[in-house]
Amino acid sequence: MDWTALILSMQLAGVTVAVLLPIGIALGRWLAVRDFRAKPLVEALVALPLVLPPTVFGYYLLVAFGAASPLGQIWEQVFGQTLVFSFEGLVLASILFNLPFAVQPIQRGFEAIAPEIREAAACSGMAPLTALRRVELPLAWPGILTAMVLSFAHTLGEFGIVLMVGGSIPGETRTVAISIYDKVQSFDDSGAAQMSALLLVISLVTIALTFAFSRRIGRRLG
């Protein structure tokens, strides 16, 4: 069992969710409430990672942030290490790649709130931020929870991008999915079997918890 890889994956997933949560709420609410001409384009951009092969995404990250690129060189001068093949690089890749998993459920959550409720909050003299905090977020909560769990579980399972930009460095970029791949290639079948089983259980439990949570909350609100 490669505990280092498991902990690393958990950290990657935790950081990803923590960063994505405010982004997802801001973007999701904006897309749910506003209507503008470029909206289909924005929505398409957010949804792109759903259909884009991770290798294509990884390739562009390598091009954009590789040691030869201007962005990569600036990053290296500021932080003293390259963005690709580092934990920070994985975090960036993971945030971008999880956008649809975070934004779409949150957007659905805000869309489900009747406009009258927002108007009533405004009429009662609530400032927009207070209304968001006291009225809208609690109502959109099932969507937000789904977004968090999906991004977390999806990060644990992400393989293609990590393979492209990670380099399988223990404790830095060797995530649990990569470690399983490495174990198969080093003929460590029992190690691969244990970690695969663990990942299967974690995935199942997280998804089952989300369903249970959103049902309970749905009942409470409904």
Binding site: L62, G66, A67, T82, G167, I169, S186
Partner: peptide, 20 residues
């Protein structure tokens, strides 16, 4: 810390700034 791969890939990664 050990990391394994095809030599050509590792060489490409070194060229791209991998911290090996």
């Amino acid at each position: 810390r050990l990391t394994f791969g095809a030599s050509g890939n590792l060489a490409r990664q070194i060229r791209q700034g991998a911290p090996y």
